[in-house]
Design a protein around this nucleic acid. Sequence first.
DNA 1: TTACATCAGCCGTGATCACAAGTCACAAGT
DNA 2: ACTTGTGACTTGTGATCACGGCTGATGTAA
Lengths: 240, 240
Amino acid sequence: MADPGRMAPAATASTQERPAFGLAKLERETLHERAYDEVKKAIMGGTIAPGEPMTIRALAKALGTSVMPVREALRRLVAERALELLPNRSVTLPVMTAEKFDEIVRIRLALEGMMAETAAKHITPDELKRMTRLNDEMIAKLRLGTKKYLALNQEFHFQLYMAARMPQAMSIVETLWLQIGPFLHHVDTDFGAPDFLNHHALMLKALAKRDGGKARSAIEADIGEAAESILASLRASPLK
Amino acid sequence: MADPGRMAPAATASTQERPAFGLAKLERETLHERAYDEVKKAIMGGTIAPGEPMTIRALAKALGTSVMPVREALRRLVAERALELLPNRSVTLPVMTAEKFDEIVRIRLALEGMMAETAAKHITPDELKRMTRLNDEMIAKLRLGTKKYLALNQEFHFQLYMAARMPQAMSIVETLWLQIGPFLHHVDTDFGAPDFLNHHALMLKALAKRDGGKARSAIEADIGEAAESILASLRASPLK
DNA sequence: TTACATCAGCCGTGATCACAAGTCACAAGT
DNA sequence: ACTTGTGACTTGTGATCACGGCTGATGTAA
């Protein structure tokens, strides 16, 4: 799959597997993949309270399946560090601590900084246009609530990282956001502060000029200042 | 697990769960954890050939269990990107490509560079001594074969990263090594070249002086030059 | 009222089975 | 000779069940 044309050393025109006819390849999603998506969505949406144990059977009943698909979905989320394994071998949504948050921020600075710098060199005009549109939408819907803001912000960032053409790094960053995501719903920080939006504007300007260094600076400032603001309110009310 | 003493807000002396007596907490390992360890060991050891599909039932028979534990072990390894999901939903050990290798190297430079810099500030004399001992052992057993070298080299690096006190980053780096590991057995590179050992010596010197910048430089040189050497022989014989 | 033993219920784990999709080889047809 | 349909066999998926461990409530004795 990773290397087409290797097993068939000189593919004839008749054996080609290209999308023939007007038919899209109909995908068959397994139940545990759907379960994974659902639980992931619940985690990112802030629906699940941190610390409370979630049982396989309860989730299975909620999803209308047996325990099998849920088991595999949870196992995968644990591997991605989105959920945590208790000594009972039950799983929980981990409680965020200041130390853990700080570490994740430092990882993000290293990784996303590098990706932003790379993205500046590879981004296409179309992608840049899409990012600009996302940012405009963000400003327009600024006061539509934290949830909407967070979703748009994530889309903006991921669109940027996508331009770096680093799929491996992309999936690592996704797991990092998956750990931070649920926590952001429980902290009271004003994400609409003009500073944050300014970083995005600087980012767009750096991308337009293909300036990798400036792009890195912009993303670092964006991550760093947001983290500082969150850490402040985290230290104020330690857990949650 | 991450926050002891939280569920019991004022633990009495009788209900304490601390390691009392000289007794180590006897751990009950589940079958799928053992299956995970075994398959992982096989992957890192270069036993499994890249590209060949591995069936659940065959592994189950080899391990003497049913399919259940194997299924979960494979699922976890796929989540960690150590294995790859085929369209058939079977799993394979991914074939390494130059592009993929290059991306992983760039991620490692960003992540492990940051960790080395952090480690320089936190490392204890004991840990430094242990690293020195590992390096000496590496030099002594230099010609005992690639397998032994790779194991000692990994131990050296991981001992360093451990000193950074960043468990999240640590587990990310582990997955990166898990992807590169199997591949290193199939490429013919002289890992015993004096350059590589020199980087380790520089690293030890930097750590002794608590010089984060020098530590970062040393690790970057170590990773970068090894990668260059491997990429050269990878381009010579593209796959495998 | 308090301390402790008991027991029922729930939990994760793993084995087994049924089923649909996929793979491969062979043979019939062009 | 090459393509195509058919069949048996293998594969991953998901449901169900049994089992041991853990939790929490109940009851009993002090």
